[in-house]
């Protein structure tokens, strides 16, 4: 039996009838066509599917779409605004914080959430904040550099968020 689900995704209300078993990640990928949110495991451990749900970083593979009904989701597609990259995206670019790019959307969104709470994180705090995100390419060092670089960018006056 299908249920109607309304989720505001990147500012746009999305309404779809879904089976209750449909995961949020599949709602986003298959029904909204937002394929930037990735699936890398089935045990809630890789973090490639990380999105912001009501402002919090969550793993979209471990939430049923029906649970997110009425919520607001930001996916990687919704992070840049007015054609301008988010400072975290800018920093990942400058610091070579990505290689194959598969984990990157989740990694960036987890970092965005961290910087909301902690605008000047130490390397250790960054590592703790992205503990739920696996990257097999970069060896993480450049990612940590990138988050620190983003923190600096965001501390500058006039920078959004």
């Amino acid at each position: 039996m299908k249920t109607s689900v309304n989720i505001r995704v990147n500012g746009t209300l999305r309404t779809h009838d879904v089976e209750p078993r449909v995961l949020l990640v599949h709602f986003l990928r298959d029904l909204c066509g937002l394929t930037g949110t990735h699936v890398g495991c089935e045990t809630t451990l890789c973090g490639a599917c990380t999105v912001l749900l009501n402002g919090q970083a969550v793993k979209a593979c471990t939430i049923l779409a029906v649970q997110a009904d009425g919520g607001e989701v930001t996916t990687i597609e919704g992070l840049a605004s007015n054609g301008r990259l988010h400072p975290v995206q800018e920093a990942f670019w400058e610091c070579h914080g990505l290689q194959c790019g598969f984990c990157t959307p989740g990694m960036i969104l987890a970092s965005v959430e961290l910087l909301q709470h902690n605008p000047q994180p130490s390397r250790e705090e960054i590592a703790h904040a992205i503990d739920g995100n696996l990257c097999r390419c970069t060896g993480y060092s450049h990612i940590i550099d990138a988050v620190q670089c983003a923190a600096k960018k965001m501390a500058q006056p006039g920078e959004a968020k």
Partner: peptide, 9 residues
């Protein structure tokens, strides 16, 4: 417990 995302949910 888990990681940030897990703790959020």
């Amino acid at each position: 417990v888990g990681d940030v995302q897990v703790r959020n949910r």
